[in-house]
């Protein structure tokens, strides 16, 4: 690895501005969030900001609503992610097969669309397509004899809908990552294996899987982070409802801070979420980006 020692001035000239700006927008707010979380801080009563030590944290850590939202976020992750990986792998294997070049190119371009789409628009589209009365999905279900389903108004169905919609948006992402992994398998090795066995499973398990590992790890890191961040799509689709059936962690914090105006508690929730995120990403990053720069 080629690298050179340089004077402190040159180094700061290159990297200083980026660090300063990112610290100003990324760290200063966090420090302020910690400050807020140690105070009673309500937007409707700003005069009365009392320093209350860790009372907000004690409240958050013993708050059923908070852990329910964390639990929901976790359930979403462990249900949607395996489906996305399994379907994505099947699509990747299909696209990796030889032949039908034109149709496969078109399909690959089609796969690009869902994951680039504005998350808020994905939620709005869900509202329109899954509406109980005017929605096209219930119409299609009617064609095969299934009675209209109340997707958005029923707590369980709304949760299933969020999973389904998350799968729609992110399965293509998994498929394209895994397809990129499949193309890194050297042709000679794959051909030799196919002469040995007719079973696609054996080829996948023993030949292709090692090449898929980096992609799988990347998928797990990013989908975990994105599920903890998930806000836009659910906010526009269900607003966390009905009740709080689809209130994931980011939605709960937004509601606490901006609809209940309790910034103190919301900041404490945010700091706990941040701690969880940092721990998780450090674990993941150390596994994955081992080599570093």
């Amino acid at each position: 690895m080629a690298g050179s020692a340089v004077s402190r001035r040159t180094l700061w000239g290159f990297i200083g501005p980026a660090i300063l700006v990112l610290a100003a927008v990324g760290i200063v707010p966090l420090v302020y969030a910690v400050y807020t979380s140690l105070h009673y801080f309500n937007l409707t009563n700003l005069k009365d900001q009392e320093f209350i030590w860790f009372a907000n944290y004690a409240h958050v850590l013993t708050d059923d609503t908070f852990w329910a939202a964390m639990g929901r976020t976790f359930i979403l992750l462990v249900t949607a992610l395996p489906i996305q990986i399994a379907l994505g792998l099947m699509i990747a294997l299909l696209l990796h097969r030889p032949g039908l070049t034109f149709l496969k190119t078109i399909t690959r371009l089609g796969l690009v669309l869902p994951m680039a789409t504005t998350y808020a628009v994905v939620g709005l589209l869900g509202q329109v397509m899954f509406n109980i009365k005017y929605g096209v999905v219930n119409q299609m279900l009617g064609w095969v004899g299934i009675a209209p389903i109340d997707w958005i108004g029923d707590p369980d169905n709304a949760f299933v809908l969020v999973i389904f919609w998350d799968v729609w948006q992110w399965t293509p992402f998994c498929a394209l990552i895994l397809l990129a992994g499949l193309t890194t398998v050297p042709d000679e090795i794959e051909e030799a294996a196919r002469l040995e066995t007719k079973s696609w499973w054996t080829v996948l398990r023993h030949i292709q899987l090692p090449y898929l590992v980096p992609g799988l790890v990347a998928i797990m890191i990013l989908r975990t982070a994105d599920t903890l961040k998930l806000f836009d799509m659910v906010f526009t689709l269900t607003r966390g409802g009905p009740g709080n059936a689809t209130e994931f962690i980011s939605l709960l914090i937004q509601r606490t801070g901006f609809r209940s105006f309790d910034q103190g508690v919301a900041s404490a929730q945010a700091v706990v979420l941040l701690a969880i995120t940092v721990v998780l990403s450090q674990i993941y990053i150390r596994i994955f980006y081992r080599e570093g720069p």
Binding site: L22, L228, Q254, V278, I285
Partner: peptide, 23 residues
């Protein structure tokens, strides 16, 4: 520094949105 840059990608925007709003 590298880890810090990467972690920024992972943090939920709501964590920054609360204090940023107040500031």
């Amino acid at each position: 520094l590298w880890f810090w840059f990467i972690t920024n990608r992972m943090v939920s925007p709501i964590v920054l949105a609360l204090p940023f709003f107040l500031i």
